[in-house]
Design a protein around this nucleic acid. Sequence first.
DNA 1: CGTTTTTGACCAGCGC
DNA 2: GCGCTGGTCAAAAACG
Length: 320
Amino acid sequence: MERREVVKVEKFDGSPAFSTTNDHVQTSYPFMQGQHGFDLVDGDKNALGFMELLGMQDFSPSLLDMIQVPIPPAQAPNVQVVTESPPELLNQPATPNSSSISSASSEGLNDEPVNKSVDDEVEEQEKNKKELKPKKTNQKRQREPRFAFMTKSEVDHLEDGYRWRKYGQKAVKNSPFPRSYYRCTTASCIVKKRVERSFSDPSVVVTTYEGQHTHPSPVMPRPNFIGPASDSGFSSTAAFAMPMQRRLSFYQQHQSRQQQPPFVNSFSPLGFGYNGSTTNAAAINYLQYEKRFCSSSGSTLLKDHGLLQDLVPSHMLKEE
DNA sequence: CGTTTTTGACCAGCGC
DNA sequence: GCGCTGGTCAAAAACG
């Protein structure tokens, strides 16, 4: 069963940037302002775009310590996880529906006075967008924290349990593959995602999530999931694999329109996910993202977030 | 007929 | 100011 999926990303200059195997999932956090000489807030405006970000691997241990996101080595072996976030949001996630989080954050990394919460700004943005032509806002457009990962898949749009509407497609510079823009179809949910195929390895799909869902997954029932005993180094995130599988089968029955990945990655390092699919990996990694950005502590998130409540049995929440 | 996709146009930010 | 690029809008087409 031990099949290795290797995802290797090369920088556009052709030099290998990193690779992943079943044994190691290397996580990159190329988003800290000043750490690597560019500002991730507008990182996607770089000439090389997001793929360049994926190529960053020279991060310092102290940076990783700051972020404190345990990635279980066996979590998603064929997936390269890359998280990008505006630096000011690292400690102050912009979560439209969780004002308690942003308001509770008092760590003084922000230079600006906090007379307006992040929530308000995001709301204002959306409001402005809806009005015909928003006259120049004083503030720079603010972005939600982003989370990107690469998945080896033959389909571009990986199922993750949410319903998405495509609202745009753009050609990517230096790449023959276009980038697609999706928005969560649920009203009042502002989560977006971008999907593009890796230029250097067309079998790799790069999915970037932006924002946090304000609702549980609309297409899946609550799982009656009793997860496997949590091992050392086995985070609750990894346990999502099973319920996601259950949910996907339900989804397949009810969503004839959305294509399902015909390409199945057969890795299953922990043995809990038969036929682990790219979909599975996508969902797992999105949840990892939520865990990181949508809570200052794991328990806060689990309390607040409907999706995770759907996925994680209560006894596992306490273990967090 | 409602929903989703397609696609050209438009806008904002950035570098020169 | 101008051009380039990424991101979004919105009308039309396609789909179920």
